[in-house]
Structures are given as C-alpha cells and as structure tokens.
C-alpha cells in the first residue's frame, strides 16, 4: 500500500514535471496554465479510464493570423505606400476590420526554423497572400491549423472512439485508435492515429496534402509533414495543446507549437455552422456569371 502511494506520488511529480517541461519552453503558456489551474475548477471528467475531452473548445490567441510573434499591422497583404506600407487595394475597404491583431506567437523559440528556400517561399506567400491562402477559398484547413482558427470545434469522445467536428468549413477528423497503416492517399485533414500516454492524448497526423497553411502569414509545409499532437488536460476547462512538426523539406529541424484550449461553457458550448463554400462563390466564380457584377 505504501509502495503504491509512493509510486503514485512519483508519477504525479513526473506528470507535473512533464507538463511543466512542455510549457516551460514557452513562458507565456506556462503562466497561462498556472493561472488557470484554479483549485476551484475540478479535474477533467473521465470516460473509459481516460480524460473525457468531449465538449466545445477554442483558443484565445491570434495564431491563425501568424503563428510567429508579430505586431499588429494594417492588413494581411500590404503594398508600398508613399510613407509606409499600406493595405493592398483589394482590402482597403475593410479598414480596421481587415487589419491584423498582434500576437505573442505559439512557436517554441519564436521563429520558425525554415530552410533558406522555405523562408523565401514563405515570404513570397506573404507577398501574394490574397491569391494563395487556402482559407480565403474556404478550403479545408489541415492540422494543426484547424485547432487554432478563430472558430471553435467540438470533440466527441466515448470509451471506444473519437471524432472532431470543426465549425470552420464543416471540417472533421476521424481520430483512429487502431492504426490502419499508411494513409491510402493524401487528404486535406490527413490521417489521425491516436494513443493515450497517461492522461495525454497523442495523435500522429500523416498523409496531409501540401495545400494547407499554418496561418494567414504564409507559413506553409510540404506534403511530407508529420504532426504529433499532444492534448493534455490541465483541468476540466483547459487543455494544453502542443504540436510538433517534422518536415525536412521545409524546416531545418522539428519544431513545436504550444497553446491553451479553453472549454466553451453553458450556452456558449454549442457549435454553429460556418459552411463557407457558398460565401466564396462570388470570389471563385463571379467572373463566370452570365452577367458578371461590375
């Protein structure tokens, strides 16, 4: 009995240590996690012996604008101005709504470890943002981007299975606990194979197309990218999320992003629909109308 207690205590310390080490690389997240570990908030409910992550979740950060640290700016795409860069012509009318909110970034170390060619491509993407960001066309977002868009998502988990429904574009992920082997073909959301590491859900995502981005800042990846997500419940209403990206074709080394996911509570815990396909028809097909709008 004493041995069991001692083992649990050690495991608890190890668990705290692991959680701490994940967050310690990014002090901002460490602080956020500490603050939210309020004793008045209970532990995550459990199902089938594991934390039950079911519910509606979202981030409170600006990673979807740019996963690197960034100051606020006038627009997602700029052009040279007489004094300072100004919004590209196509977004001028949006005014402050089209501007970019500042963000602390979510990448460990702050800067993405691009290869020289990768960095050139990212900068070119940024310069041609309006033509290239797949989000503009309402394309499926891929992983990890789906998890930190401005819109929430709902995890559905039982003791046997799990899926994630995203509000953005009605995207969905089938979280597989039985590894079916390599994905038969690449897809926008990839193939997610999960296992439990203690109370952390570890999901390895492979088979993603090279067509998705990380954010609205042109940060991209290749079709060889492997994403390992770690979903660690901190308390009933908070999940620490990390994703380690391995993509030698784009980055000089693997890198990790960290952030918090917050539970939507009460009446807010209802996923709405954002089937944006119909919203982009004018953009994609407007010129093909019988009578194009002026």
């Amino acid at each position: 009995m004493k041995q069991t207690v001692a083992t649990l205590a050690i495991a608890g310390l190890l668990g705290l240590g692991l959680a701490g080490s994940a967050a310690a690389t990014h002090p901002r997240h460490h602080a956020a996690a500490s603050k939210s570990s309020d004793a008045t908030v209970g532990a995550m409910p459990r199902v089938g012996g594991h934390p039950d992550l079911s519910g509606v979740w979202s981030v409170m950060n600006t990673a979807n604008w740019d996963i690197e640290p960034h100051a606020s700016s006038a627009a997602l795409q700029l052009r040279p101005g007489p004094v300072v860069p100004v919004p590209a012509k196509d977004v001028v009318a949006l005014g402050a709504i089209g501007s970019v909110p500042a963000g602390l970034g979510v990448v460990d170390g702050g800067t993405l470890p691009y290869t020289p060619d990768g960095l050139k491509q990212r900068d070119d993407n940024k310069a041609h943002y309006l033509e290239r960001d797949p989000e503009i066309k309402c394309d499926l977002p891929g992983v990890p981007r789906a998890n930190y868009m401005a819109l929430p998502f709902q995890i559905l988990q039982s003791d046997k299975s799990m899926m994630i429904a995203y509000e953005y574009a009605g995207a969905a992920r089938n979280i597989l606990f039985d590894d079916p082997g390599p994905a038969p073909t690449d897809s926008w959301m990839g193939q997610s194979v999960a296992k439990w590491d203690g109370d952390t859900l570890v999901v390895t995502v492979t088979g993603q197309l090279d067509s998705t981005w990380f954010d609205r800042a042109g940060n991209f990846h290749s079709g060889d990218m492997v994403v390992v997500e770690r979903w660690t419940p901190v308390n009933a209403n908070l999940i620490h999320y990390s994703a380690t990206i391995t993509d030698p074709a784009t980055f000089s080394r693997p890198w990790t992003m960290n952030m918090n996911l917050y539970r939507h509570l009460g009446a807010d815990a209802q996923l709405q629909q954002f089937k944006c396909v119909e919203f982009v028809e004018e953009l994609l097909y407007g010129k093909l109308r019988k009578n194009p709008l002026p």
Binding site: D52, L156, M163, G170, Q270
Partner: peptide
C-alpha cells in the same frame, strides 16, 4: 456514416460531404 456518442451529444459523420450531424 460514423456514429460517436457522448453523454449529451450524438455525432454522425456523413461521408458526403464531410458533414457532421450534431444531435443534442
């Protein structure tokens, strides 16, 4: 179709067109 049941929701993932029905 893939069905997942939680305490308060039933999700039905319809392969066409990756629509998830959420039943409250």
């Amino acid at each position: 179709y893939k069905i997942v049941q939680t305490r308060d929701t039933v999700g039905i993932w319809v392969e066409m067109v990756h629509d998830v029905r959420l039943i409250h």
